[in-house]
């Protein structure tokens, strides 16, 4: 298989397979988790303003008092790379074009220089959180192979995308093929690893917020 064939494969069958596994995997996993259900709370509720599942979904995006100081890299690195990823994935013109071709939806893009900058910053933030994971005793203690693996499959699409756009190291076609391939790997593993938190975190926050709202505590 030469690079053109590879590119054709990743753009055609490869992409379909990846999206298929991603969608079916996601639906299956959501079913597996949420079909477990839960019991109704029979105690008399207490009502307090600002306490609800929805409130917690929003509130948990901010660092609770004192936490930023205790773990600055987690928060700052975390914000930067999550926001950076969102910019790179959703506001880069070629990505929007692809989404338009696939689903018919489109929105304005950011200038490519801005996306370039966001990419570099995202990569840097990801390296920083990786170093932090290795350095910080608690993070290192909790980390499993999966944590490093999921880091890598998230990092590679950003890196290869940047290298393709900048024509670095390998010819554009090859790099683009690798970029798409790496995205497909990401899509395939997402439902089955901790990357699935992109979906479950909203429900987790909601459950926690709702259970504590029942007691009148905004969490």
């Amino acid at each position: 298989m030469n690079e053109v064939e590879l590119l054709n494969w990743v753009r055609g069958p490869g992409l379909n397979i990846a999206i298929g596994i991603f969608l079916l995997g996601t639906i299956w996993r959501l079913f597996e988790i949420y079909s477990l259900g839960r019991k109704k709370d029979l105690s008399a509720p207490r009502h307090t303003a600002g306490a609800s599942g929805w409130n917690t979904i929003a509130r948990r995006s901010l660092a609770p008092p004192g936490m930023l100081k205790r773990s600055p890299i987690s928060y700052i690195g975390g914000y930067v790379f999550h926001v950076g990823l969102a910019i790179v994935v959703f506001l880069f013109a070629p990505h929007i074009e692809l989404i338009e071709n696939l689903f018919g939806l489109s929105w304005p893009a950011l200038p490519s220089q801005v996306v370039d900058l966001a990419t570099v910053v995202t990569l840097a933030a990801m390296v920083l959180v990786l170093v932090d994971r290795i350095n910080k005793p608690v993070k290192r203690y909790l980390s499993t192979v999966e944590d490093y693996f999921t880091w890598a499959v998230t990092f590679l699409p950003v890196l290869t995308g940047y290298m393709a756009v900048k024509h670095l190291l390998l010819p554009y076609t090859t790099m683009l093929a690798l970029h798409i391939l790496s995205v497909e790997i990401l899509l395939v593993v997402l439902p089955f690893t901790k990357l699935f938190h992109v979906f479950t975190l909203f429900m987790s926050r909601w459950y926690n917020g709702q259970a504590n709202a029942h007691k009148g505590v905004p969490v």
Partner: peptide
């Protein structure tokens, strides 16, 4: 239950 599953997955 579902909350516990959701927490572990998250």
């Amino acid at each position: 239950d579902a909350p516990i599953a959701s927490y572990f997955e998250s």
